[in-house]
């Protein structure tokens, strides 16, 4: 699916991603974890085609991402960004309909039905006619997820696409955090690659097939939850001790048990 091969990307003279090599496979939820400024969102931007790498290659199967037609790529991959665009006065349904923009051949009626179905999937079908200005932060985040789902409707039917979510749970209460990740799993079940940047180690442990741990722009560890989320790797990435506790459902729950091993460092400066 989407593969990164020795990818390095510099922004403002600093390598935000360095020599990253990984594969985001179909039908899998891949969680990207790491401390603030570790390069998680940058990795997502490279995988989405929003940024082009300075060295290395990003490919969709065997095709370089840069060679895919812009609209063709937009029909197959959708992104929900970390910083959501400010609301402008329009209906929730109109905002979701923007996800249908790359699908120029479909009718307005089909687009509306697809968008309403997407809103239903995020639990906001009842708000279709509401003004986006009246939404809470959490509802706003879910509306943008619905926009991404409307964008990927055909890709889900074909089982060929990718959904990239940058901290989708940031503004949500615990129940909605789990619902969003249940939905991410369902989308992976349709055959899509789902890449999700998370801060909560336990959400990653509960829902991800694969985990990528990032540190200073590089990939520190990658693998299944049990392979990648080791206390040693977590300590290296977060400078914090975690103790894994098995849950009755068979997953691991990570309890922060130690103190931070490093003083707080100001990015780009001295402690």
């Amino acid at each position: 699916m989407i593969s990164l091969d020795q990818v390095t990307c510099r922004r403002g003279g600093r390598a935000v991603v360095r020599e990253a090599t990984t594969l985001f496979a179909r039908s899998e939820v891949t969680a990207v974890l790491g401390a603030n400024g570790a390069g998680k969102s940058s990795l997502l931007r490279l995988a989405s085609g929003e940024w082009t790498p300075h060295t290395g290659h990003v490919r969709w199967d065997v095709t370089p991402l840069a060679r895919l037609e812009r609209s063709e790529l937009a029909r197959r991959r959708a992104v929900v960004s970390q910083v959501l665009p400010a609301a402008f006065p329009c209906r929730v349904l109109d905002l979701v309909l923007l996800g249908r923009l790359p699908h120029r051949t479909t009718s307005r009626r089909t687009d509306t039905e697809t968008s309403l179905r997407a809103l239903d999937e995020v639990g906001l079908a009842g708000l279709a006619a509401r003004s986006v200005e009246t939404l809470s932060g959490g509802e706003h985040a879910r509306v943008h997820l619905a926009r991404a789902l409307a964008q990927l409707s055909e890709a889900r039917t074909a089982g060929d696409g990718a959904l990239l979510l940058d901290e989708p749970t940031a503004s949500l209460d615990p129940a909605h955090q789990h619902r969003i990740l249940e939905l991410a799993r369902a989308i992976a079940g349709d055959g899509l690659a789902v890449i999700v940047v998370l801060h909560d180690v336990n959400l990653a442990a509960a829902y991800a097939d694969r985990v990528i741990l990032m540190r200073e722009g590089g990939i520190a560890a990658v693998g299944t939850v049990r392979d990648a989320l080791t206390p040693a790797a977590l300590r290296e990435v977060y400078s914090l001790d975690f103790t894994p506790v098995p849950t009755p459902s068979g997953t691991l729950f990570f309890v922060p048990t130690g103190h931070c091993h490093e003083p707080m460092i100001q990015q780009g400066g001295t402690p």
């Binding site: 239903d120 906001l124 009842g126």
Partner: peptide, 19 residues
């Protein structure tokens, strides 16, 4: 591509008029 059942009740919530 089915609706998330946990959200069904929320979906059906009434829309305030001013909204």
């Amino acid at each position: 591509m089915t609706a998330n059942p946990a959200w069904a009740a929320e979906s059906a919530a009434a829309i305030p008029r001013e909204a």
